[in-house]
């Protein structure tokens, strides 16, 4: 069943936890960029090793990071089937699939080591860098945090409803995959409404804790950048430099 620790912030203590969320998201962005550009053996292996290193340093169990990948197993299977159908070589397909798998791992490392609020702030700062929207930082940050929290709230409610329903006789743990999906469909409307109500309540509770869209925040978010932040940026810039010099 859905284990709450698999999709919530893990409060371990590690280097990765301490790195600024903007920088972590920046690293993810660089990784995606390199994945889409021209392939190079050394860069590929360097990238994957870097992600593996992040995983080890985050003090979150390795298998937990792969749980997200496991949830995408069908999509990965379909990727193999479709690409094979288009007569791509197995080696090429493997590379693409590995890029995807490690994208998911990178995503989960970031997810487990960053609180939802920090992710929201990080995303809003990135959006602001490109000056895409001229609105207050707080509003965008709230917006992003809200989306992530809504998704989490939905799965939380779904998990609780599955347990509560199981106790009342709607079998979940002992049924096959088809019956499980039938239950998801059956509960969907109710869980959606229930989680929507909870998010509405959360929005109200924010107001009772003095949240106001119009307040301009006086102080900077986040701590000063430390040595690991700079190292992180350096490594990622290193990847880009390597690409420009050696691969093009």
């Amino acid at each position: 069943m859905l284990n709450k620790l698999d999709y919530s912030y893990n409060d371990e203590i590690s280097i990765i936890h301490r790195i600024n969320p903007v920088i972590k998201l920046f690293g993810l962005f660089i990784y995606v960029l390199i994945c889409l550009l021209k392939y190079n053996n050394y860069l590929f292996i360097a990238n994957l090793s870097f992600i593996f290193l992040l995983m080890l340093l985050s003090n979150v169990n390795i298998l937990r990071n792969f749980k997200l990948v496991w949830k995408f197993k069908f999509i990965i299977l379909i990727m193999y089937v479709v690409m094979y159908h288009y007569q791509m070589s197995i080696a090429d397909i493997n590379i693409i699939v590995f890029k995807f798998i490690f994208f998911l791992v990178y995503l989960s490392v970031i997810y487990y080591t960053t609180t939802k609020e920090e992710i929201g702030i990080g995303l809003s700062k990135i959006v602001n860098i490109f000056n895409l929207i001229g609105i207050d930082l707080r509003k965008i940050a709230s917006f992003f945090t809200n989306i992530i929290t809504s998704v989490i709230c939905f799965f939380d409610t779904l998990g609780d409803t599955l347990i509560s329903g199981e106790i009342k006789g709607n079998v979940y743990t002992h049924s096959n995959i088809i019956d499980k999906y039938k239950l998801y469909v059956r509960y969907f409307k109710k869980v959606y409404k229930s989680s929507k109500d909870k998010m509405k309540k959360r929005k109200n509770d924010m107001k009772y804790k003095l949240y106001n869209d119009n307040i301009k925040k006086r102080y900077k978010y986040g701590k000063k950048l430390g040595i690991y932040d700079y190292l992180f940026i350096l490594i990622n810039i290193g990847f880009i430099v390597f690409y420009i010099l050696k691969v093009r």
Binding site: Y9, T115, K116, E117, R202, Y211, I215, K216, K217
Partner: peptide, 19 residues
């Protein structure tokens, strides 16, 4: 509801909202 993930953030939340 709790608005944030960490204890520290939750306690500070309302105070940061009023700068």
């Amino acid at each position: 509801s709790f608005i944030t993930d960490k204890v520290k953030d939750e306690l500070r939340y309302s105070l940061e909202n009023i700068n």
